[in-house]
Amino acid sequence: MEKVINITLKVWRQRGPKAKGSFETYRLDGISGDTSFLEMLDILNERLVGGGLEPVAFDNDCREGICGMCSLYINGHPHGPDSLVTTCQLHMRHFNDGDTITVEPWRSAAFPVIRDLMVDRYAFDKIIQAGGYVSVNTGGVPDANAILISKDKSDEAMDAASCIGCGACVAACKNGSAMLFVSAKVSQLSLLPQGQVEASRRVKAMISKMDELGFGSCTNTRACEQECPKGVSISHIARLNREFLKAKLSE
């Protein structure tokens, strides 16, 4: 039979980046287990708007776990208690009747709160802009099959490339480190022949930008890997460190 639950929500409300925030408590009854977490927040917002109040601001877009727009720190976990999902794919069947659910924004110095549960993750874009690409212009490139790439390498590059840039790794890390995010891109491109030519320039530029933007350093707690909705492995951090060392040694 379909599960229906009553819950209490403690939601972080904050007017703006400089404003002081606080938790507000809301009660929601009769939530179906098949409702997604964000649909549950839609229900809350409909109620708030119906009462003439401002809705809770939260980022969301594709609602199928791929755009990386949704965030939310739910009961102490980025993207909530279920594994390998983003918040938009989390369903209320994972909660029990009578639960109190705490909902906070990502908390990291590099991701300032914009409003309520919405944060500014532009720092991630800046890291990519610093070197997370292969420098090729449109046109004039070789035939796609001209360079053979082993299936293993290609599959591993794909695993790294599956990062959605949501920032859960940073939110999960006690140091606020962006190493998993950076390593996913560095690893993807260093596994492919196309990324080799500027590998050392890339890794140095991305690491230096990451440090400049106020992300912390990695102490191998593996919290990022645990909470990553796409299961990006910290073995990519090991590869990043290797690439960085290689680049430094060749200076």
């Binding site: 299936k151 794909m158 196309q194």
Partner: peptide, 14 residues
Amino acid sequence: DQCVAQGVPFAREY
């Protein structure tokens, strides 16, 4: 061709 040059990891054969 363009996407492969950018490092898009398309599926490959052995």
